[in-house]
């Protein structure tokens, strides 16, 4: 079974994430970045599937130069090879354009049996690129899988919805997005870190994918960020130490605010 895992390089959530003042895009350069933690679950799941049978795991990312770190981490975990699509023109792309670039890259890699992604990125957090990618590839999507079984001909997953827990099935090829409930991602071993250095990584531009630069990027996005503003810090609240009356004081506050 051949698998392509789509991963994203994101600003570290522990760092001070911000926007570029000039164009309201996410700052990915002046902040420490890493492989999105939610994509580690996707890499882990793909590795487990291939280890249980046979095949190859290719990691694919679309992003600036630093995004090669995300590929490196996935290769260290055990993926076989990497593809990095990097082009100035992609800067500021929205989810629609990102899914287009991913779809064309996957077609160039060769349609695998499975495309695996994380449930959402930890920066944009829309969680829609996987489904858009499936739409563009014309394959069924089994998204938000918290449990996954793969057979020779299809996949079956548990998806926890708002009102019910669903079992969803699809034939191959298919796209699967996985939640952080599905597994425990491994840490790269020393052997894995050494081996990763020799693994092949291809670097592609939009021209390599036959995508017109007018189809992507900030200027061609179909949504426009008109303004960003840091949320004003919350007014400092009242903090009391419980001296046997903490619960009563809390109830007093709730009454004062008309919650009771």
């Amino acid at each position: 079974m051949n698998i392509v895992v789509c991963v994203k390089y994101v600003p570290d959530a522990q760092a001070d994430r911000t926007f570029n003042a000039s164009d309201n895009t996410t700052d990915r350069v002046n902040v420490d970045g890493l492989l999105s933690e939610l994509d580690e679950y996707a890499v882990e799941e793909a590795l487990k599937i291939v280890e249980a049978g046979e095949g190859e795991v290719t990691v694919l990312t679309v992003g600036p130069d630093q995004a090669s770190d995300a590929i490196k981490k996935a290769l260290q975990m055990g993926a076989d090879k990497g593809v990095h699509v990097n082009d100035e023109a992609i800067h500021g792309s929205d989810a629609l354009a990102t899914s287009l670039v991913l779809a064309e890259a996957i077609k160039k890699i060769g349609m695998p049996d499975l495309v695996v992604t994380g449930m959402a990125s930890t920066d944009g957090t829309m969680g829609v690129v996987p489904i858009m990618l499936a739409e563009r590839l014309g394959v069924p999507a089994v998204t938000f899988a918290s449990e996954l079984t793969v057979s020779g001909s299809g996949v079956s997953a548990r998806r926890d919805g708002d009102a019910a827990s669903l079992t969803v099935e699809a034939g191959l090829p298919a796209l699967v997005s996985v939640t952080d409930q599905i597994n425990e991602p491994r840490y790269p071993s020393f052997k894995g870190i050494m081996a990763a250095k020799k693994k092949p990584v291809e670097n592609w531009t939009l021209a390599d994918l036959g995508i017109d630069s007018g189809a992507v990027g900030l200027a061609n996005a179909w949504t426009k960020v008109e303004a960003v503003a840091a949320r004003p810090p919350r007014a400092v609240g009242t903090i009391v130490k419980d001296e046997g009356d903490g619960g009563a004081k809390l109830a007093g506050f709730l009454a004062e605010r008309k919650f009771i």
Partner: peptide
Amino acid sequence: FELVDFGVVGDLFAVLPQATGEV
């Protein structure tokens, strides 16, 4: 506590039952 409008520094097993009773 950086976010709160009202905070109680204490053991939830003591604070919550008292608050529940008051409410």
